[in-house]
């Protein structure tokens, strides 16, 4: 009998189960969650023959080591990193066959932040509100991986892709985020709006799945009263009390009490998820 499961040998700094999240429950206070670099995650699924709705692993900076109890096909995408099977180098960004009981090592990111590890059949943990994603803000979904965690696998539904190496964008050395101003740009001074779109910010080391925090010149408010909480979107550029913009990512709250000066185009959020602390950030208006 084949035991369709993966054993986590080394969990890494922060490895979570992710899929496309649980959008549509914001009115109940439920964040969307889901993989931060969606194109990278979906590519990994395609490489191993999984549907887009399947669940995979999202690592943070230093990878993960796994031992499947059955033979599987895996693909590692997103942040480039060394991949090995029982110590022998294997491909990143391509389907890799891992025999039952072999050790799959996904190493530390060479650049970028988050690697995605898709396994044929997908991770079959119990869904919550239709999603298997770990939501670090509200605690929904499975806990982040720990050494020894056993993850069940679903049935394989399709053959792996027949490509040797899939092209992927390199993690950004400079993060250029296209923004549309609003809804609360009128809560800031004209000088602050110029600062936002002309000065360079840096990715803060305190960034996480909730938001990409920045360091740089503070944005001065024209309206200084408190904002009654209002609904926010992914990609919202919220300006907290310290004046430094925060870009909301998948595990963001559903409402916020600080003004949102602008919204980042959804297509630019994948790069934001791969920007290491210290990366230069520029906000540019329009398309």
């Amino acid at each position: 009998m084949t035991d369709r499961a993966l054993v986590v040998v080394r969990a890494g700094a922060l490895t979570t189960v992710q899929d496309l999240g649980r959008p549509g429950h914001a009115h109940l206070g439920v964040p969307p969650s889901g993989m931060l670099d969606v194109p990278a995650g979906l590519l990994a699924h395609r490489l191993v023959g999984n549907p887009a709705s399947a669940a995979l692993l999202e690592t943070t900076l230093n990878g993960v080591d796994l031992r499947p109890r059955c033979a599987v096909t895996v693909a590692v995408t997103g942040a480039p990193c060394p991949v090995a099977v029982d110590g022998r180098p294997a491909a990143w960004g391509a389907p890799v066959r891992v025999p039952a009981g072999a050790l799959l090592s996904v190493g530390a990111a060479l650049s970028g932040v988050r690697s995605y590890v898709a396994v044929s059949g997908g991770l079959d943990v119990d869904p919550v509100l239709g999603s298997r994603a770990t939501d670090l803000l509200s605690g929904l979904g499975p806990a982040p991986l720990a050494d020894g965690t056993v993850l069940p696998l679903g049935p394989v539904t399709a053959a792996p892709a027949r490509m040797d190496l899939a092209p992927q964008p390199a993690p950004p050395t400079e993060l250029v985020l296209r923004i549309a101003l609003g809804p609360r740009d009128d809560w800031f001074t004209p000088a602050a709006l110029r600062t936002l779109t002309t000065r360079t910010y840096r990715v803060s080391a305190t960034s996480n799945r909730i938001g990409l925090r920045t360091e740089g010149p503070p944005l001065e408010r024209a309206v200084t009263r408190e904002l009654p909480s209002e609904g926010v979107v992914s990609g919202a550029v919220q300006v907290p009390a310290n004046g430094r913009p925060v870009i909301f990512l998948a595990d963001r709250p559903t409402t916020g009490g600080y003004p949102v000066v602008a919204v980042v185009r959804p297509a630019d959020l994948a790069a934001a998820a791969q920007a290491v602390p210290g990366t230069a950030v520029r906000f540019v208006r329009g398309r």
Partner: peptide
């Protein structure tokens, strides 16, 4: 629309 999010004195239409 995907999400209708009421708040203190706003309604967000997202998606």
């Amino acid at each position: 629309v995907r999400d209708l999010v009421p708040a203190a004195r706003t309604v967000l239409l997202d998606g």
